[in-house]
């Protein structure tokens, strides 16, 4: 029983990891071998695909863009989101309930659906030629889940926290950043991971808004590259895919325990 279970287990794991192997082996194959031996181990280890990918495919540009979009969104979402969550959970504002309902609307509206008006809005605001053109809408769409999660988290905290600093006479901003912020940090980490997963892979909006090559994130740039290569040189395609995935894979290998904790904390906190 134990043995069959382990075999089954190994099979499942292989299914999940097979594409990684495929990308890796394909990226060392030349054009001919890619078609003749698409799934085996490469017969000759040819690094030509990588050098060609690096010269033809603007990997560093796209990577930098993805990084800017994702980190920009994370910073803005966490700042604005945690402040609103704090306001809603701890401050006496008569519109607290309404605001909470209002913001939860954001959980339902899929970003894909408002692409057309959003696109015209960004154009009208002259943000199309800037990183903010994607960061701001991404933030708008990430806020709902961030606020709701932090709201739930903050409500469980004892009031004494603020009372102590209230007596010290610190103002509300100092108090928020010195006392509340460190306490909600674990929840913020969770949120950043969630936002990262969403934004790093976001495609539909970026496809339309970041139409200029120099502003494209990896997802869109990679597709553009496939189109230009004409999807016949699989070795080159695999090399470019591997290059694009490498940063995420490395981050994941280093911090996967943390990422798992963060991701799954989301499920429980809600």
């Amino acid at each position: 029983m134990k043995a069959t279970m382990s075999v089954f287990w190994l099979a499942v794991v292989c299914t999940f990891l097979f594409p990684l192997y495929w990308m890796l082996s394909m990226s060392f194959k030349n054009k001919g071998e890619a078609y003749d031996n698409p799934f085996g181990i490469p017969q000759s280890w040819d690094v030509l695909n990588f050098s060609e990918a690096l010269s033809k495919y603007h990997f560093f540009v796209y990577f930098k863009n993805s990084l800017i979009y994702t980190s920009g969104t994370i910073v803005l979402t966490l700042m604005a989101g945690s402040m609103l969550a704090y306001c809603l959970s701890r401050m006496s504002w008569k519109l607290n309930g309404t605001a909470l309902i209002y913001i939860s609307l954001g959980l339902i509206v899929p970003i894909e659906v408002v692409v057309i008006p959003l696109f015209q809005l960004i154009k009208g605001l002259h943000l199309k030629e800037s990183y903010l053109g994607l960061i701001l809408p991404y933030t708008g769409f990430s806020l709902a889940s961030c606020v709701l999660m932090l709201y739930a988290f903050l409500r469980t905290l004892p009031k004494e926290l603020e009372e102590a600093s209230c007596i010290d006479g610190t103002n509300v901003y100092q108090m928020f950043f010195r006392i509340i912020f460190p306490i909600v940090l674990p929840a913020l980490v969770t949120q950043s991971v969630l936002v990262f997963m969403r934004i790093w892979n976001e495609f539909p909006l970026a496809f339309i808004i970041a139409s200029k090559d120099q502003f494209r994130p990896l997802t869109v740039g990679l597709l553009g590259f496939f189109v230009n290569v004409g999807v016949s040189d699989w070795g080159l395609i695999a090399a470019s895919m591997l290059l694009s995935s490498l940063p995420t894979i490395i981050v994941y290998l280093i911090g996967n325990e943390k990422i798992e904790q963060a991701l799954t904390a989301g499920a429980i906190l809600k």
């Binding site: 402040m83 609103l84 008006p117 809408p137």
Partner: peptide, 23 residues
Amino acid sequence: IFVFAAPALLLFTVFCVYPLLPQ
């Protein structure tokens, strides 16, 4: 209250809710 609530509500309204209207 304004400082804490306004940024998020503004961003949310402009980029998430408002686009539904011209739609």
